[in-house]
């Protein structure tokens, strides 16, 4: 599909979202509905959501159409495409809005403490953050599905190799325990390619799980006023939504710890590009040798294998 056709698709998605949002806001603001502000926001959120997801999907398809695979510029390689960089920071804004407001709602209920600010405004911010996150989920899901890029997941049949690499990247006592538990072979040190084993075997799968959990449970909670949800389902959706919120809080803290310690990764998530030397140094120092290995460095003559570019 050409760039023009893909652009038309995105514009159509945007136009449909605007039309859908206009109708929803017009109905909520007409004065004819007996809803309080909180319920009104809930209805607007639920009605706009399909259009937000649709826009996210067409943006993802737009990006996938321009997918180029490996890209190199002198000594630098492209680690993230422009769309991924923008998408990452859009998702970050969503987290900045949704996580603190979600924590406030939960702790406010537990502590029975209330701000002078009306509660519906906290919910409104939470809904805006959630809509941004759901846009991002649809965007990246469509992009990865359509482009076929699976570089953040261990390839089929290679989970044990990636888990062994992960066990060699975490502190030795933890890695040894994990290896014993999963019966991993740590004698042969696997070589990381584009991403560290921490990213492929642990970080990305747990992000996926936490985001899937918060998305499904959040949708169940939010749709309870427009569709009858059985009590037990709602109870477990609420409980698991809080669990997913705690998990995502842990993920954000861990993500910051990991990337701040590897500053070139942080720079790459703003510029898209990373120096091949910096990437190789990072891959080299992240892992430690296995129990029977003395050589701590990656083979010097493998630049292309170590540091291929990515367009994820």
């Amino acid at each position: 599909m050409g760039t023009a056709a893909r652009s038309v698709l995105v514009l159509a998605g945007l136009a449909i979202l605007v039309a859908g949002a206009y109708v929803s806001f017009a109905q909520a603001g007409s004065g004819a509905q007996p809803w309080d502000p909180e319920l009104s926001d809930n209805f607007v959120f639920m009605r706009v959501l399909p259009f937000v997801l649709g826009l996210g999907a067409v943006v993802g398809l737009f990006r996938a159409g321009g997918w180029k695979g490996t890209v190199r510029r002198g000594e630098e390689i492209r680690r993230f495409s422009l769309g991924t960089v923008i998408g990452h920071w859009i998702a970050a804004v969503g987290f900045l809005l949704a996580l603190p407001t979600g924590l406030w709602q939960y702790l406010g209920g537990i502590l029975d403490v209330h701000l002078d600010l009306p509660l519906y405004l906290i919910y409104r911010l939470h809904y805006i953050g959630a809509a941004i996150i759901l846009f991002s989920v649809a965007n990246f899901a469509a992009y990865w599905w359509s482009s076929g890029d699976r570089s953040l997941w261990p390839p089929r049949g290679e989970w044990r190799r990636h888990l062994a690499g992960f066990a060699l990247e975490v502190p030795a006592p933890l890695g040894a325990r994990l290896a014993a538990w999963l019966r991993l072979d740590l004698d042969t040190r696997p070589q990381a390619q584009r991403f560290t084993f921490y990213e492929t075997a642990f970080s990305f799968p747990t992000w996926t799980f936490a985001l899937a959990l918060i998305t499904v449970t959040g949708l169940l909670k939010a749709m309870r006023y427009i569709y009858p949800i059985p009590g037990p389902v709602l109870y477990w959706a609420s409980t698991l939504h809080v669990a997913a919120m705690v998990l995502l809080t842990l993920k954000v803290l861990d993500h910051l710890r990991y990337t701040l310690a590897r500053w070139p990764l942080m720079v790459a998530m703003t510029r898209g590009w990373i120096s091949e030397g910096a990437l190789r140094r990072m891959l080299d120092t992240t892992s430690r040798p296995g129990p029977r290995q003395a050589e701590p460095t990656l083979p010097a003559g493998t630049p292309a294998g170590v540091a291929r570019g990515s367009e994820r």
């Binding site: 705690v246 809080t249 842990l250 803290l253 861990d254 910051l256 710890r257 701040l260 310690a261």
Partner: peptide
């Protein structure tokens, strides 16, 4: 949350 926050602060 405390453990992960301390790890981030230490880093």
């Amino acid at each position: 949350i405390a453990v992960f926050a301390v790890a981030l602060a230490w880093q």
